[in-house]
């Protein structure tokens, strides 16, 4: 039911989302435009409590250094002491600023860089043997709210997750996360499903997307129902000792997913065996049966190869 699927965040396969620390793909510019639109409508999607400024600079430094090294054709970073120049060619940005001096940037450091980075970001303060959701930017989320969770600790913001508390999963997870070290980031995958290719499935906008769940029919499963996979990574931030938690969302329709026979078969089995509590928690209740029926044609009881990559 729950898998402890944590592993070191090290490069896996050229061209895969695991090739670089922060994956940049063909949706980069459009996702950044989408983020700007969401923030225009709802500025509370990005918040940073006053003590999180050092962690914000950590975040900026990590993402800039990583992207400039991984994608030199798109991003450049040059430093002259604390005077930094950052060039983001796909977004047409060429800014010079003083590292550590927020007044030299158009936004706070965390907001500045995460308006240029795909995926949501939670920036966690580490203190009193716990992690605290004290900053973040969250515009592509699977039905959780930064504005609701801001200031909460690890157990508080995970309170709604069914069954896992009783199994002691969060205690073990917290112990692991408190010990994530600089230089040794970790990752895990999380998943749910979404109707239509919509990144922003927030509680704030539930009235816009919640009703889509009722539009699924046996005929339109292939185009309407999407698997939503989150690549979650965990980074120790060396200046603040905080933890950066990027949550990168990828969507794929049932039609496209089942073009890889292994994936169609696997998802049929996973959805078919999902406990009721998780069907409800993930919000699949109204359309999961149609989806399982649609996927059944890909599952002939065959064995599938290990790992997630296509054969």
């Amino acid at each position: 039911m729950y898998a402890v699927n944590l592993e070191p965040h090290t490069p896996v396969k050229k061209g895969s989302v695991f090739e670089f620390p922060f994956d940049v793909d063909e949706h980069y510019v459009s996702e950044m435009k989408d983020r700007a639109l969401v923030l225009d409508e709802d500025p509370l999607r990005c918040q940073s409590l006053p003590h999180m400024e050092a962690a914000g600079w950590d975040t900026l430094e990590l993402i800039m250094e990583s992207k400039a090294a991984a994608y030199p054709e798109h991003f450049s970073l040059s430093k002259d002491g604390d005077k930094w120049r950052w060039i983001n060619r796909p977004m047409g940005i060429d800014d010079t600023f003083i590292f550590g001096n927020t007044s030299t940037l158009p936004y706070g450091p965390m907001e500045y860089i995460t308006r240029q980075a795909q995926g949501d970001f939670a920036v966690l303060d580490q203190r009193d043997g716990n992690l605290w959701m004290d900053a973040g930017i969250v515009t592509t989320q699977a039905d959780w709210s930064l504005d609701f969770d801001i200031g909460m600790n690890f157990f508080e913001w995970h309170a709604p997750v069914p069954l896992a508390h009783e199994l002691g999963i969060f205690k073990r997870a917290l112990k692991f996360l408190l010990n994530v070290q600089h230089g040794k980031p970790a990752r895990r995958l999380n998943w749910t499903m979404t109707i239509n290719p919509r990144l922003d499935t927030s509680p704030e906008n539930y009235h816009k997307w919640g009703k889509d769940r009722l539009t699924v029919t046996p005929e339109n499963v292939g185009e309407k129902v999407y698997l939503r996979v989150e690549l979650q990574t965990f980074w120790r931030l060396p200046r603040s000792n905080g933890l950066l938690f990027p949550i990168r969302c990828y969507l794929i329709s049932m039609e496209e997913l089942s073009s890889i026979p292994k994936w169609g078969c696997r998802l049929h089995r996973v959805l078919g065996s999902l406990p009721q509590e998780l069907r409800d928690y993930k919000g699949l209740t109204s359309y999961i049966d149609d989806t399982v029926a649609w996927l059944s044609k890909f599952d002939q009881g065959q064995e599938t190869s290990p790992g997630t990559f296509p054969d």
Binding site: R127, P238, N241
Partner: peptide
């Protein structure tokens, strides 16, 4: 080793 911080400042 990489730096490890078990004596970090409390930002609050």
């Amino acid at each position: 080793s990489y730096p490890v911080n078990l004596f970090a400042l409390g930002w609050k």
